[in-house]
């Protein structure tokens, strides 16, 4: 039975005692989220460049990947990695599953974000770079990507926060992350309120600073917004 409880009845001692466990789990979550976000970004960068260059065959593969990634829940992707792959002899650790799963999910989101940024660089802008004798690779590197990256920052930030939130399903692959610890404590001690409170606080502490930094960066980008805005 669920009942309403007074916050003052929280078991502070319990909270203090198990805080280190949460901290440890948070560190694990942060580590995996960080690796996953970086890997997602690299994957997204690769996909968006292939799409820009319209490299035959590869583009089709990437479109397929993006559809697959965006239209299946992370939970299912993780199930597949953790329970499905062993059936064909591929055994991955919990951590590898989490990282691969997060990257598989995040890569497509990052790709779409960067893609939008790339699309906003006009054809004639790239032509002006070509007309200076630059090769395609140089135009991509020095002209298109820096601009695309800047305009994509809000979307990239949103993806980052989205991916961190998604880490909350990692416990299904038996990774001792925040959710896992909370479930564990509830299972052992029945301290549901305390365990959940700490879970919420942990995610809040994790996400709040990132969210604040993101909106600061976004505001700065808007202020420094280039292109047609703010001409003299």
């Amino acid at each position: 039975m669920r009942k309403v409880r007074d916050f003052s009845l929280m078991d502070l001692e319990f909270i203090l005692e198990f805080s280190p466990m949460y901290l440890e789990a948070a560190m694990l979550t942060i580590r995996i989220a960080l690796i996953g976000i970086v890997a997602s970004f690299i994957t997204g960068l690769f996909c968006s460049i292939v799409k820009y260059l319209k490299i035959p065959v590869l583009v089709q593969f990437i479109n397929l990947y993006i559809e697959l990634s965006r239209n299946t829940p992370l939970l299912i992707q993780l199930f597949f990695l953790y329970f499905g792959l062993p059936k064909i002899g591929i055994l991955l650790s919990s951590e590898s599953c989490a990282i691969i799963g997060l990257t598989f999910l995040g890569g497509s989101y990052m790709a779409e974000a960067l893609r939008t940024g790339i699309d906003q660089v006009t054809k004639i802008q790239t032509e002006s770079a070509f007309s200076l004798g630059m090769k395609k690779s140089q135009v991509i590197r020095y002209i298109i990507l820096p601009q695309a990256f800047t305009t994509s920052i809000p979307a990239l930030c949103a993806n980052m926060i989205f991916l961190i939130k998604e880490t909350s399903v990692f416990s299904v692959v038996a990774l001792a992350d925040l959710m896992y610890v909370a479930k564990d404590l509830i299972g052992i001690y029945y301290k549901t309120d305390e365990a959940l409170l700490m879970l919420v606080l942990s995610y809040l502490l994790l996400l709040l600073p990132i969210s604040v930094i993101c909106s600061m960066v976004e505001r700065r980008m808007r202020y420094a917004g280039f292109g047609n805005t703010g001409t003299v």
Binding site: I124, Q125, E127, S128, Y142, Q147, T150
Partner: peptide, 11 residues
Amino acid sequence: MVFQSYELFPH
């Protein structure tokens, strides 16, 4: 080549 719309690199 120089274009009507300048096309300086904004970044």
